[in-house]
Design a protein around this nucleic acid. Structure first.
Lengths: 220, 220
DNA sequence: TGATTTTTATACTGTCCCGCATAATATAAG
DNA sequence: CTTATATTATGCGGGACAGTATAAAAATCA
């Protein structure tokens, strides 16, 4: 009996998402959602260590005290940015992963979507947040490392599911190993993410993807 | 007649490598080679932005002015560290790449050597300098980016050469594409480098490698 | 209107940072 | 022994940094 007092059993008022409940003090001058998006953009371009709170303040339009009030310190903001990135990536990639196309087409779509994510950015290609975080913060910070491990495992699993289904549908030979194919697909993702950061042109990345797909599901 | 005065034509004294030519002033208290090695170790663990000159000074045993005198500013030191890393990697991997074993065995050796490099480190696995630099400095710094691109291309080429030779020796089917296989091998390298940084255990990385080798040269 | 609450805006603190100026030290040459 | 040279050692200075204290502003409630 901790969470509920002896209140009436009728349903709680539904916690409407975007219904502002008439907040009391001075209204905020920012929308947390968009501010977090700006912070994410900046972290993706410059990484954790090279991004200062002043940069973040300028990018979000919030001054430092507001940043602290809304998101906590720099590390917490980084973590929340990463969560946001993952939520977004999951939403975008999830659609492609869960459709019912032939494997080849599905893979083409998955990698094309990944390339869109990695190559976007005004200040240059921003790569993959997971790969960049693995390189910088994951070794020393257990919480962040757990998130990275989770992201890596999730991608492996999504690909494995994809190949397993293709095998069941008879699109792959009987001796194909979905787990191995999945790790190879993930490796291709990691590789194009790294290369994107080095400004390797999209055309070249697409060639890498095409070759990898041929290897995984056979030449067209 | 710029380099040589009208001196006697007898052979110049051979520029012996490790023969100290009786330097003039106070002797250095450090060996540049080992100092650079220490700097490299530190950069590999913490990355560019998160490594301070004080850290470098402590690690190398040189105080800051000596660091500047010997290697230039922080960025130059980073670049020289990276060159050192590449020279070393080339030396170690070059041996394995240039032997004459069957592809499968050669690949096993290559990936095992890479894993040794990526998993070494007292403060945790240090991953691949190229991958880490791609994630951090390569986008914004043209010189460093050129080095990263070079490193990526060099690995691709080494693998391609390896597969081309295997194909000539009849170890691969006639329709095998060495370039595609090479990029897949490189991708596997990048992937285990990323995962190593996330402290994925070696056993798991070895499983990834084994699966990838099976895909590339056929199941044993 | 006046009190309360929540947020914004300014400014401060102590720390760390990079790069360099200066002085001290240790060797070789004259 | 004196001078020249090359390095080490100390420490300074301007600036950026993360985080916070304090004051001003803008809304609701009484």
């Amino acid at each position: 009996m901790v969470q509920k007092k002896n209140g009436p059993p009728q349903g709680d008022p539904p916690p409407d998402k975007a219904v502002e409940p008439k907040r009391r003090g001075r209204p905020r001058a920012y929308e947390p959602e968009v501010a977090l998006g700006k912070a994410l953009d900046l972290f993706r371009s410059t990484g954790f260590a090279a991004t200062s709170l002043d940069d973040l303040s300028a990018a979000t339009g919030m001054n430092r005290p507001s940043l602290y009030g809304a998101f906590g310190d720099k590390r917490e903001l980084y973590i929340k940015s990463y969560q946001r990135y993952r939520d977004n990536a999951r939403a975008v990639m999830g659609d492609v992963f869960s459709n019912d196309w032939p494997v080849r087409r599905q893979l083409e779509q998955i990698f094309a979507t990944a390339l869109d994510i990695y190559l976007s950015g005004e200040e240059g290609p921003r790569g993959c947040f997971t790969v960049m975080t693995a390189g910088s913060e994951a070794v020393a910070d257990p919480d962040i490392r757990a998130m990275v491990q989770n992201a890596l495992a999730e991608l492996d699993k999504a690909f494995a599911h994809c190949f397993r289904r293709a095998k069941e549908k008879g699109e792959l030979p009987a001796d194909a190993d979905p787990a191995v194919l999945a790790r190879l697909a993930s490796a291709t993702i990691h590789s194009i993410a790294v290369r994107a950061r080095a400004r390797v042109p999209r055309q070249e990345l697409e060639a890498i993807v095409a070759g990898a797909i041929d290897m995984m599901v056979g030449k067209r």
